[in-house]
Design a protein around this nucleic acid. Sequence first.
DNA 1: ACTGAAAACAATTGCGA
DNA 2: TCGCAATTGTTTTCAGT
Lengths: 159, 159
Amino acid sequence: MRYDRIDARILEIVQKNNRLTSEEIGELTGLSATACQRRLKRLRSDGIIEADVSIVSPKAVGNPIQMLVLVTLERERSDIVDKFKKAIKSSAEVVNGFFVTGDADFVLYITSRSMEDYEQFTRRFFHVNPEIKTYKTMVILDRVKASFAIPIEPPAEDD
Amino acid sequence: MRYDRIDARILEIVQKNNRLTSEEIGELTGLSATACQRRLKRLRSDGIIEADVSIVSPKAVGNPIQMLVLVTLERERSDIVDKFKKAIKSSAEVVNGFFVTGDADFVLYITSRSMEDYEQFTRRFFHVNPEIKTYKTMVILDRVKASFAIPIEPPAEDD
DNA sequence: ACTGAAAACAATTGCGA
DNA sequence: TCGCAATTGTTTTCAGT
C-alpha cells in the first residue's frame, strides 16, 4: 500500500473528477494513458481509492435542510455505544456519523426535507434510543467548503 | 430541475458507484443503456449530480488523524464571518467547513498526519485568524457511517 | 421519450524495452 | 514500469417506433 509522486498527482485529479479519460489524466501527469490506467487500477484494488461516487445535491433531491447534531449518551459503556452505532447505520436520514472524543460522543450529519421532518425524525430517533442524554442541533447555513478531496502527503522516497 | 422515479433510482445507484456501465445501470432500472445515459447526462447538466469523484482513504495517504472542530468567533459581524470563510477555503487541511447556527459558528472537518501536525496547524490557523474566540476539537475515533449518499425524496408525481 | 444498430471512443491486454 | 499496438468493451449518435 504505497504510492509515489505520480500516484499522488493522479489522486489529486480524480478526487476532483473521476470521469476524465486516462488520456486526459495522462496529459496532466506526463504519462501515457495506459500507465495512468494501470495505476488507477492498482490504487483502487489497494483501497487507496475507497470508492467512486456521484455527489448528489441534497437540495435538488428534496433535502434542503442539513444539520450537524452533537449527541451525548447517558454512559459510555461499550454495549450502549455499539447499539447506538447500529442505530446510526440503519437510519437513512443520518448520512454521516462519527464517534468522537471531547464535547460530545457522536456527531451526526443529517439531511432533511424540512424542519418539521427533522423534528419528527428526532422524536423517533431519540425515542428509539433512550440512552441519549442530550443532543444539540446546529443547522447548516452555508457549506463554505464541501470538498471531498483529502490532502495528500508527499509520498515516501525510496530511490 | 425535476426528476422522476427512475432518475431517483439512477441517483441511488451512482451515489454508491459511478463507474458502473450504462448497461449495468440499465439492468438495475429496467431501461436501455442509451436511456440511462441520456438521463445521467441530464442529471449532470442540471446540477442534480454536482460532481463525480473518487473517494480517497485519508489513512492511506498519510492523514490518519481526523477531527471535527467547533469554532466560535468573537463577533458575528458579516465582514468577520466572510474573512473567516476565506480562511477556510484557502486552508488545505480543512476538508469541509460549515457555517452553522447554534453552539458554534463554524464546524470544520480536518485531516492531519499526526496530533503534532494538528497542533501546529491550529497555532498557525488561529494566529492568522485572531477573530476566533474559542475552538473545541473532537477527534474522530470511528467513522461509523461515512456515506456520500443523500437520501432521495420520492419525486413529485405529475402524471 | 424510448429502443436498437452502427460509429466513435476509451479501457484493457500482450509484448518488447 | 513504461509505451505502443491490437483487442475488447463502452458510450454516443442516428434512425425508427
